[in-house]
Simulated assay, not measured.
Amino acid sequence: MTDSHAEPQPIPQGDYVAAKRHGGLIYTAGMTPRENGRMIMTGPVRSGQIETLQEAVTLACANALTAAEAMLVPGETLATILTMTVFVAAEDGFSEHSKVADIASAYLRKRLGSRGICSRAAVGVASLPGNAPVEIQLVAAV
């Protein structure tokens, strides 16, 4: 595994898998800020609230990375994160989606160095499962 903390695999909240591998690509499900199945923060994200999201965004991103790393076989590492999609459940008029995504980007860079730098999309949505403030999905290459 890649710099793994031996974190527990995220538990799907429905009829899906946390990650799926096809050849050298790994696709994760959208991950919310759940710890041991419990949502640590609920939305929506409000203007001026970015600093309060650090823990929730980092946990959602860590869950996605853990799901991706669980698809590796012994001796493999993630070559790179190809892309990340950050869904933000934001109040009407919110415009700082990229700042929320920056928190996740910083986490990936810290964990994986240059292999964590990826393309990304930050998307505002009306709501997310479990009233999560954020959901993160990754595509990685082995």
Rank of each mutant, 00 (worst) to 15 (best):
L138Y: 05
T2F: 06
A90S: 14
Y107P: 00
S98F: 11
S119W: 10
Q137Y: 12
L53E: 00
G37W: 08
R109A: 12
G23H: 11
P12C: 05
I26W: 04
Y27T: 02
G124F: 07
A19K: 01
A19H: 06
G30I: 00
S105Y: 07
A64V: 03
L25Q: 11
T42I: 12
Q137A: 15
F87Y: 14
I26K: 01
G113F: 10
Y16W: 14
Y107A: 01
M31D: 01
S95E: 15
A90M: 04
S4M: 09
E96F: 06
A18S: 14
R120S: 13
E7V: 00
K99H: 12
A141C: 08
E51W: 09
N36E: 10
A141D: 09
K99T: 06
I81S: 02
Y107H: 14
L25E: 10
I26H: 03
L53F: 03
E76S: 09
H22L: 11
G43W: 02
G30S: 06
P129H: 02
G75I: 08
E76T: 06
C61L: 04
A62G: 10
R111T: 15
Y27Q: 00
G75P: 12
S98K: 15
I103D: 01
T52V: 10
L25S: 09
P129G: 03
G113A: 12
V139W: 06
T85C: 07
G116H: 08
V73M: 14
V86N: 05
C61K: 00
V100D: 01
V142M: 12
T28W: 03
T83M: 03
T85W: 05
V57F: 01
E55Q: 13
V125I: 13
I81K: 02
Y27W: 11
K110E: 15
T77D: 12
E96Q: 15
Q9E: 12
P44I: 07
